[in-house]
């Protein structure tokens, strides 16, 4: 079972790099959806004999519904309604941002070992994946100009937090996790509304234009 978990973590990280490198927002949304789907599989694969089956299934289904289907659908809708379909000029180019992301992941893999965690017997790739994914999300938020790209970054960041949360899923009641997923959904919903407003005010989703706002 460990190799399946290995493969899942690796795919999550490779998707991180893919999102960093893709200039088409549609492809980025699809990649984030795929990442959400993979994350939904993770609790199932990582489940030990001690974990509660019902809890694991609830977590997996919740993650799949929200991260794999719901939010990507919302975002895809938002890009279809607006006219933007590709990121033109990010603040950091696609290749450099991919290299930066890879460096972050390498650092995460290298230094995740000594971090003291309350949970013994964790998967060796879990913490590096969590930190690497969060770092990718941060990079996306900071370097992308279009609002959709930044929302994608937020989602990737949240995916990293979700992976880290898997460490504690044995202690956390399912209600808390459902609440977190709901929060995420609400956040993306609000962001969708904000995107709609930016689009209406500037007829573009470029957040740089927000700087030119004067009263």
């Amino acid at each position: 079972m460990t190799t399946w978990a290995d493969l899942l973590f690796l795919l999550v990280l490779v998707l991180d790099l893919f999102v960093l490198a893709s200039s088409r927002l549609r492809a980025g949304i699809r990649a984030v959806a795929a990442q959400g789907g993979l994350l939904a599989l993770l609790p199932v694969v990582l489940a030990g004999p001690a974990t509660e089956t019902r809890h694991v299934v609830a977590l997996a289904l919740g993650a799949l519904a929200v991260k794999g289907v719901g939010i990507p659908w919302l975002l895809a809708r938002a890009t279809r309604e607006s006219t933007v379909n590709r990121e033109v000029a990010p603040l950091v180019g696609f290749a450099p941002s991919m290299v930066l992301g890879a460096l972050g992941i390498v650092v995460a893999v290298w230094y995740a070992g000594p971090i003291p965690l309350p949970v013994p017997g964790k998967h060796p790739l879990l913490v590096p994946t969590a930190i690497g994914t969060a770092w990718t999300g941060l990079l996306l938020i900071v370097t992308r100009r279009k609002a959709v790209g930044q929302v994608l970054g937020f989602l990737v960041l949240e995916n990293g937090v979700f992976v880290l949360g898997l460490l504690l899923s044995d202690f956390m009641p399912a209600m808390v996790e459902v609440g977190v997923l709901l929060d995420l959904f609400a956040a993306v919903f609000v962001m969708g509304l904000v995107m709609f407003d930016i689009q209406r005010a500037f007829s573009s989703l470029d957040t740089e234009k927000l700087a030119s706002l004067k009263d």
């Binding site: 990280l13 490779v14 790099l17 991919m98 290299v99 890879a102 992941i105 390498v106």
Partner: peptide
């Protein structure tokens, strides 16, 4: 570069 990154990873 992506290919190099994968190999390096």
């Amino acid at each position: 570069i992506g290919a190099s990154v994968l190999s390096g990873f």
